[in-house]
Amino acid sequence: MPKGNSSSLLRNRVFLYGLLFVSAIVLLTIVFFRQKPLEYYDKTEYHLGTYVTIRVSSSTMSPVTLAEAAFTEIKRIDDKFGSRSNGVIAELNRTGELHDIDKETSFLIRSALEIARNTSGAFDPTLYSLTRLWGFDDESSKKRIPNDKEIEDALGSTGFSRITYDEELGYVSLVDGAMIDLGGIAKGYAVDMAIAKIKSLDPDATGFIDAGGDIGVIGPKYGNRPWIVGVRNPRGESVQDVIEYIYLYDGAVATSGDYERFFVEDSVRYHHILDPETGFPSRSGVISATVIGKSTMLADAYATAAFVIGMEPGVTFLPRFGALVLLVMEDMSIFRSPGFEVYQER
């Protein structure tokens, strides 16, 4: 048997080969971990009065860039239409009429009016004075039960029929001191626009945007799997308590529930979803309404409407406008509009 020239040389070679061997294994392991399946990037920011989470992945671009572009878009819409903004809507409410409104505002007003008409006013973009009366306009506002006189006065200046809108002239006017509030659809619109922004940068990007429970899908998980969305148990202890599951490849889902903003007085729960007819929190027997729609804006607005309409025949018309409804009633029974079950199968 040949022997090493000297024992120290031998040791050096043993050491060298040992090092090579170990580094080979380490390299192999690193190679494996680098080739993990497509990773999603999560980013959460506070906009539109809620936490907005963007989860995105792209094979051609940095998901960080995509998320930042999307947040820029959301912030722009928040600044323009958000409740605290001093933009075109505030001006309209101050002056009562406006000429030559821009296309985007025009689109939002038109969409709001269309949804209001479709739902016979169950969704109403003019409820701001009522909302403020109850103290639901802001987290910090003092919440109280207004007296009948106050409600009656407020009802005198609400109702979507008090908006006159001419699309061709770009002219809007408000009568009886009505105030328009696009907060109800601006959140969904912001999500939709953020998705459009991401899609314009990378048409094959996948992921979703979650704006306080209103979820719009950018693209299917890993390109071919549905996003699993849980419907929050309206009487659950925590947000994580889920009663139903929805599988979304595209489109959007939104939920309105009486647990979002409410106060309890004399063991009666007064929540923030007001019935435009009575001016009081809606008492339709619904405690949570979830709507799947083709855009987040529609899903959000129709969820509010479905909550107010309740299990009346009216709600069965909503699928006609592209809104599939799941209602959770006070006794925790669940109603689904035909077609909703398609989204509950994997």
Binding site: T53, R55, F208, D210, G212, G213, D214, I215, K221, W227, I228, V229, G230, V231, R232, V239, Q240, V242, Y245, I246, V253, A254, T255, G257, Y259, E260, T290
Partner: peptide
Amino acid sequence: QFEVDAITQ
């Protein structure tokens, strides 16, 4: 089966 990605609320 259930690993929820998001919760609608």
